[in-house]
C-alpha cells in the first residue's frame, strides 16, 4: 500500500511538473516555467528515492514523445535541444534536495540551502548544454539562460518551502 501510494504521489508531482511546463512565458531561448517549483517540491515532499523516480518518469515520458515539456512539446529531440540541459539537471537537483531533507528532517534553513544548491546545479547543467548546442559563449548563455530567471527562482524557492510545510502533515 505504501509503495503504491508513493508511486501515485511521485506520478502526481511529475504530472504537476508537466502542467507547470505548459504555463510558459516565452522570453529568450529559455521560457520561464513553473517546472522547477514542482521539482523542488518532489524533493522536499517525497525524499531522494521517490523524488528521483518521479522526475525520471517525467523525463522518460517526455523522451518517449509524450507532450510534457515546455510549450507542450515532447520527444527525445527536445532532450538534445537547447533546453535539454536544464531537464537533465533536474535529476541531481531532486536527489540533493531529497537527501538534505531526509538527513535534516525538513528544517527551514537547511531547506533554503538545499534549494539554492539545487538551483545552481540545474543552471550548471543547463548553461553548459545551452552553450554547446547553440554555440554561444558561456557568458552569452549566462545572460540569456540564467540572469532573467533569478528573481523568479527566488520566488519559486520561497513558494516551494511554504507549500511543502503546509502539505507535509497531510501526506505523511
Amino acid at each position: 500500500m505504501d509503495q503504491l501510494r508513493m508511486t501515485a504521489y511521485a506520478s502526481l508531482l511529475a504530472a504537476l511538473t508537466a502542467v507547470g511546463a505548459y504555463i510558459s512565458i516565452p522570453i529568450g531561448p529559455v521560457p520561464i516555467v513553473l517546472q522547477n517549483l514542482f521539482v523542488y517540491l518532489s524533493g522536499l515532499l517525497l525524499g531522494s528515492r521517490w523524488g528521483l523516480m518521479g522526475i525520471a518518469a517525467y523525463l522518460l515520458a517526455g523522451a518517449a514523445g509524450l507532450p510534457v515539456f515546455a510549450g507542450g512539446k515532447g520527444g527525445i529531440g527536445h532532450l538534445v535541444g537547447p533546453t535539454g540541459g536544464y531537464l537533465l539537471g533536474f535529476l541531481p537537483a531532486v536527489a540533493i534536495i531529497g537527501l538534505v531533507t531526509e538527513k535534516t528532517g525538513g528544517k527551514i534553513l537547511f531547506g533554503i540551502g538545499a534549494l539554492i544548491t539545487a538551483t545552481a546545479v540545474i543552471y550548471a547543467c543547463g548553461i553548459t548544454w545551452l552553450s554547446i548546442v547553440t554555440g554561444m559563449t558561456i557568458v552569452q548563455s549566462l545572460i540569456v539562460g540564467m540572469v532573467p530567471f533569478l528573481p523568479g527562482d527566488a520566488i519559486k524557492i520561497a513558494a516551494a518551502l511554504f507549500i511543502a510545510r503546509s502539505l507535509r502533515p497531510v501526506i505523511l
Binding site: 504530472a15 508537466a18 523516480m53 518518469a57 515520458a61
Partner: peptide
C-alpha cells in the same frame, strides 16, 4: 531501472494532467 513501475508512472502522469487542469 524498474521498467514496469516507470511504465505505470508514465500512464499515471498522463491520467493526472487533465485532473489537475
Amino acid at each position: 531501472i524498474p521498467e514496469k513501475r516507470m511504465a505505470t508512472m508514465m500512464g499515471l502522469i498522463v491520467r493526472f494532467i487533465p485532473v489537475i487542469f
